[in-house]
């Protein structure tokens, strides 16, 4: 029983790490670009399938780097062509619908190009085998996932705290107009920020592909919990997004042990409880995005 619980809790944490990566990217795009990116799951899928395509040429390690970079590049083009014309309309409705349409197109095109059935994403043999016989569920690959997510999160926070780009992104979140008046090219800033968000989605996609395999709708099952992670953590707080992601992943994992049918619903129940007890989320601020 203890082992089963540990197994499910660990699975839940891995799942939560994917939610956290997705939620971080969504939260970045939400706060600077004011876009609810419904196509975020689409960028996850793009990252995963690009890694699948690159893997035979550049190897496993190369694919983990190139897949997310490809998603970021496509994200930058999308921002330039489709989203930039909509910044002048303050209503979030339009970007929401646009990215929604984009999500449909990406899912359908992926299905057309690579087929509706799942594809396996080959993980090197040395990573696929368990680390110990007692804790059979801890494979090298899963440890790698945890390590890479940690590296990505630390890297993102260093970027936001220590580099000129990161400082501008944080300043733009507070007051974009003033940042613009100080001579920063806010169009470029928002494009880079959007690409950064897509990079994180792509990374989540590559890592998830190694655990769950590749299917065209794989983004759909990850994007909704990521929204919940943001609501639970508090809109506008990046630390909150990570916390929320890990929390709901862990809760879903533990619920699987006792009552598998409720493992998805529990995520939304946590959200309802948080909304009643702390309407702005665990770490949210009053008045943001309202």
């Amino acid at each position: 029983m203890t082992q089963l619980l540990l197994f499910n809790a660990f699975n839940g944490l891995i799942q939560g790490a994917f939610y956290a990566l997705m939620a971080l990217g969504l939260a970045l795009i939400l706060s600077l670009n004011s876009v609810i990116n419904m196509a975020h799951g689409g960028f996850l899928v793009i990252g995963a399938y690009l890694a699948y395509v690159f893997a035979p040429y550049v190897g496993f390690a190369g694919a983990i780097v190139l897949g997310p970079l490809g998603a970021a590049a496509i994200g930058m083009v999308v921002e330039r062509v489709l989203i930039r014309p909509l910044y002048k309309r303050p209503d979030p409705l339009y970007t929401l619908l646009l990215t929604f349409g984009l999500a449909l197109v990406i899912q359908d095109l992926t299905r057309t190009i690579w087929g509706p059935t799942g594809l396996p994403f080959e993980v090197p043999q040395i990573l696929a085998s368990p680390v110990s016989t007692v804790f059979f569920f801890i494979t090298g690959y899963r440890l790698l996932v945890v390590a890479l997510v940690a590296v990505a999160v630390i890297g993102l926070f260093l970027l936001l705290r220590r580099t000129p780009l990161g400082i501008r992104i944080r300043a733009g979140t507070l007051d974009l107009e003033t940042v613009s008046a100080l001579g920063v090219n806010i169009y470029m800033l928002r494009a880079l920020n959007f690409a950064l968000g897509c990079l994180l989605a792509g990374l989540a996609g590559v890592l998830a592909a190694g655990v769950l395999g590749l299917t065209p709708p794989m983004g759909n099952s990850l994007i909704m919990p990521s929204f919940v992670a943001i609501i639970v953590g508090g809109v506008g707080s990046l630390v909150g997004a990570i916390l929320g992601g890990l929390l709901i992943g862990l809760a879903a994992g533990i619920t699987t042990t006792f009552y598998p049918a409720a493992s998805e619903a529990v995520i939304y129940l946590i959200m309802l409880i948080v909304l009643v007890v702390r309407p702005r989320g665990l770490l949210g601020h009053e008045g943001l995005f309202e």
């Binding site: 609810i36 979030p92 919940v228 609501i231 998805e264 939304y268 959200m271 995005f289």
Partner: peptide, 27 residues
């Protein structure tokens, strides 16, 4: 749960409530 929220927050909470009911129907 949503009546005091606006814009982005309103949209995200309504999406998530919808998904809760979806999973109840599925499971």
């Amino acid at each position: 749960l949503v009546m005091r929220r606006r814009g982005i927050y309103f949209a995200m909470i309504t999406i998530a409530i919808g998904q809760l009911l979806y999973f109840v129907a599925v499971r």
